[in-house]
């Protein structure tokens, strides 16, 4: 079963949506069970070419004179930080969901999943601070929820996600610095953002995060209209993050727009992939459970 974003959008509060997505992901995972590293030993398996040599159980070899590979349950004490970009451009989306809503659904579902298997989850919403907020946070961080794995913690995560609105310029650098600091030891950082960063500091910050040995996953969220630029009428394009605006004949600039966008996407993908960041480009008209399932399956497969 996949969850069409349009259908998902009608499901009401984020808690419901995120749970639905999580269930979809779980169903998918059940259909294709995979095993990975775990501190909890499950069984031995006879070595076959392609298995990691480091997983060979040398003691079993000493006893049985055969190579066996140890298989483990998944690690349970993973610390995962969900970073959601709360900038103005993330509020774009004339379809079922804005990019921010889509990112929130994905982040919420992941929070459910992670907490369900006992992993620690934290949430960081990047962006300008909430007006009137008294919380003392570094620049670029709108909200931060420390690690936790309880059900109540997940609910709080979802509540925070639900409450955030897209606003202000994109600058993930400050948020990611803060994230690196908070995650501490090697952890998983999942970033949901459109990376439309005028300062172009976000990608170096992601690379820096990866440089600190964190496992970095980037969900690069893009609206279908941003990808296809399907406008015809003369349009005054307004920036969602600052005062910039421009009048244009979309038909006449479509080609050059698409070329510019493609160049940006290619460059981002190349940079991040080269830095060993797990980069996934996500169009927000895709079913989020499929996106997450693919992501997890891929990660399981490559783990």
């Amino acid at each position: 079963m996949t969850l069409d974003p349009a259908l998902l959008a009608r499901l009401g509060p984020l808690q419901v949506r995120a749970r639905k997505v999580m269930e979809g992901v779980l169903t998918g995972l059940h259909q294709s069970p995979s095993y990975g590293q775990s501190v909890e030993f499950v069984e031995h398996k006879e070595y076959a070419p392609g298995d990691e040599i480091k997983h060979i159980d040398w003691r079993a070899y000493a006893k049985l004179d055969k190579y066996y590979v140890k298989r483990f349950e998944m690690e349970t004490n993973l610390r995962a930080l969900l970073v959601v970009d709360g900038s103005g451009s993330m509020a774009y989306g004339r379809g079922a969901m804005t990019k921010l809503q889509y990112g929130a659904v994905c982040a919420g579902a992941l929070a459910f999943l992670l907490a369900r298997q006992g992993d620690q989850v934290a949430l960081l919403v990047a962006g300008d601070p909430e007006p009137g907020s008294t919380e003392r946070l570094p620049p670029g961080v709108r909200a931060f929820l420390p690690f936790g794995s309880s059900n109540a913690h997940v609910q709080e995560v979802l509540r925070r996600l639900d409450g955030s609105a897209g606003r202000g310029p994109t600058d993930l650098a400050g948020a990611l610095d803060f994230a690196a600091e908070k995650v501490g030891r090697r952890g998983l950082v999942i970033v949901a953002s459109d990376l439309f960063d005028a300062t172009e500091r976000s990608v170096p910050a992601l690379k820096m995060l990866r440089g600190r040995r964190h496992d970095v996953v980037v969900l690069h969220l893009l609206d279908r209209e941003e990808l296809d630029f399907p406008f015809d009428d003369p349009t005054r394009f307004l920036s969602m993050e600052d005062e910039r605006q421009i009048d244009a004949q979309p038909r006449q600039i479509r080609q050059s727009y698409l070329a510019e966008l493609q160049r940006f996407l290619e460059e981002t993908r190349r940079e991040l992939t080269r830095a060993d960041v797990d980069y996934v480009q996500v169009a927000t008209d895709r079913a989020p459970d499929r996106v997450l399932l693919e992501l997890l399956s891929r990660r399981e497969g490559s783990a």
């Binding site: 451009s89 993330m90 509020a91 774009y92 990019k99 459109d194 439309f196 005028a198 893009l222 609206d223 941003e226 406008f231 009428d233 003369p234 349009t235 005054r236 394009f237 307004l238 920036s239 969602m240 910039r244 605006q245 421009i246 009048d247 244009a248 004949q249 006449q252 600039i253 050059s256 727009y257 070329a259 510019e260 966008l261 940006f264």
Partner: peptide, 30 residues
């Protein structure tokens, strides 16, 4: 064609700006 355009807040305005900068002269001439 030169009438007041419809306003649209747009996330990827950076790329619109870049292409428009490139073409605006040519477009006006055209």
């Amino acid at each position: 064609n030169r009438r007041r355009p419809k306003p649209l807040p747009f996330g990827a305005i950076e790329f619109v700006l870049r292409s428009q900068r490139q073409k605006s002269h040519r477009l006006r001439l055209r």
